[in-house]
Amino acid sequence: MLLYSIILFCSSLSAQTDWQRWEKAYIPYSASDDEVRTKPGRERKYGNFVLDGSKKLYNFFISDLDGDNCPFQPSCSLFFIQSVKLTDIFQGALMFADRFTRDMNLIKINHYPFSRNGRLYDPVWNYTLRQENIKFIPCTETVNE
């Protein structure tokens, strides 16, 4: 009876993985192998090239060398890139200036939810001044990003 109940318990647990049909799948030994296999082709846009290029230069010359200081997810430089991509250069600059001052605020606890890597989750779409874009997440939650 105990055995039967264990089997029932186990099979009911596993059932959820079968709520969609699946096929044979490859199991990579190393995560990086999987990344290489599944990496999508990059979009080649002039704006993106300039932005990504400047971010790379900033990372290479300053960000990588002055340590891991940004408490936010995404980091301030990535926030700037994302805000410019989502809006325009002027609004992006204003969003970055606001983020930069919020970064300097020493009392950030109980304001932002935590992301999976332990940083404070502060997504760019909450600051585009479009009410419909705002996804409010309470600071008690941990975001899986």
């Binding site: 264990i6 089997i7 186990c10 596993s14 699946w22 096929e23 044979k24 799948a25 490859y26």
Partner: peptide
């Protein structure tokens, strides 16, 4: 079958049941 579909958690469960 689960193992071949990369559903390793389920595979472990059923291998454990088969041990019984």
């Amino acid at each position: 079958s689960y193992k071949s579909g990369a559903r390793l958690n389920d595979a472990v469960k059923y291998f454990t049941i088969s041990q019984m």
